[in-house]
Simulated assay, not measured.
Amino acid sequence: MRIDIITVVPGLLEGPFSHSILKRAEDKGLAEVKLHNLRDYSTDKHKQIDDYAFGGGAGMVMMIGPIARCIDALKSERDYDEVIYMTPDGETFDQGMANSLSLKGNLIILCGHYKGVDERVRQKYITKEISIGDFVLSGGELAAAVVTDAVIRLIPGVLNDETSALTDSFQDGLLAPPVFTRPAVYEGMKVPDILLSGHNGKIDEWRFEESVRRTRERRPDLLKGRDF
């Protein structure tokens, strides 16, 4: 997988992509993330990429020209499955969407800024609009990092344990159960006996019951329409 991220502040993303799972995926040749500074595609001597909104109002708008030149340049080099725009009014990102995107080959992610992009960018280039929640960030970079991390970790071979991602919260529509590690007793607090029993069938049953219980307590909305 290759993900090209178009941004006004590439430095904000260099850190997250140079460590941990994302770095491991790149080292293994399983995924590649490229950052593109939108100002490099400005034809203005001041590298301007935004301007005032027609009709007035507070805030600046990202211009169509630099964005169009950047996307066109990328598309001239390879095919892309999606051109994604990170925006508060996009479809809410969830595990199902992460699963779907992880099956794609090449993605472009455009990070919004200011009051957003010229609407003609969305009309001509964008194939998918994503939000990570009902709040506003200073820009789309952190949201793009969230999406990229959630997607790349699902690519086979990225995680050391191939089954790890399959047991994450939300994969089966439930929150993950409690987990424990050594020591078995800490300051009088004991690990549940069932987890020390070695009985895999009963452990799986306990974990499922705990997932349902935790989901019912913390995210009852996930259980609507389900017979638990």
Rank of each mutant, 00 (worst) to 15 (best):
E141W: 08
Y80D: 03
D134R: 08
E82H: 02
I71Y: 09
M86R: 07
A150W: 03
A176R: 12
T148A: 02
G116A: 11
I109Q: 03
L142F: 01
C111W: 02
G59M: 09
I155Q: 11
G139W: 05
P177Q: 10
N160V: 09
V83Q: 06
C111S: 13
F170N: 02
D50N: 01
Q48D: 07
R153A: 00
L142G: 01
T163C: 10
S138D: 08
H113N: 14
V147H: 00
V151K: 01
I126N: 04
V146G: 00
G56C: 07
R78P: 00
T181M: 05
G56F: 07
F180L: 00
P156T: 12
F180C: 01
A144Q: 01
L175G: 04
G112R: 06
A73T: 14
T148K: 02
C111Y: 04
Q95F: 00
G65I: 07
A73K: 14
A98C: 03
S164F: 13
R122F: 05
V146A: 07
G116M: 10
L154W: 08
I108D: 08
E162M: 14
E77I: 14
G90H: 05
K75E: 04
Y52K: 12
G90E: 06
T127P: 01
N106Q: 02
P88R: 12
L166E: 15
A98I: 01
G133C: 13
G173I: 04
G157D: 11
H46L: 09
Q48W: 06
E82W: 01
A73I: 01
M60R: 01
V83G: 10
Q171V: 12
A176M: 13
Y114M: 11
A53I: 10
G57T: 04
K128T: 08
R39A: 04
R122V: 15
R39Q: 05
T181P: 01
R78L: 09
I71G: 07
D40A: 10
D149W: 01
N160K: 12
D40Q: 12
D149N: 10
I109M: 04
D79C: 06
F180P: 01
T181W: 04
D44T: 06
P178H: 00
S164R: 12
M62N: 09
T43G: 15
D161Y: 13
G139C: 15
S131M: 07
G157S: 11
G56V: 07
G157W: 02
C111V: 06
S42N: 08
I126D: 08
K104H: 00
T87S: 15
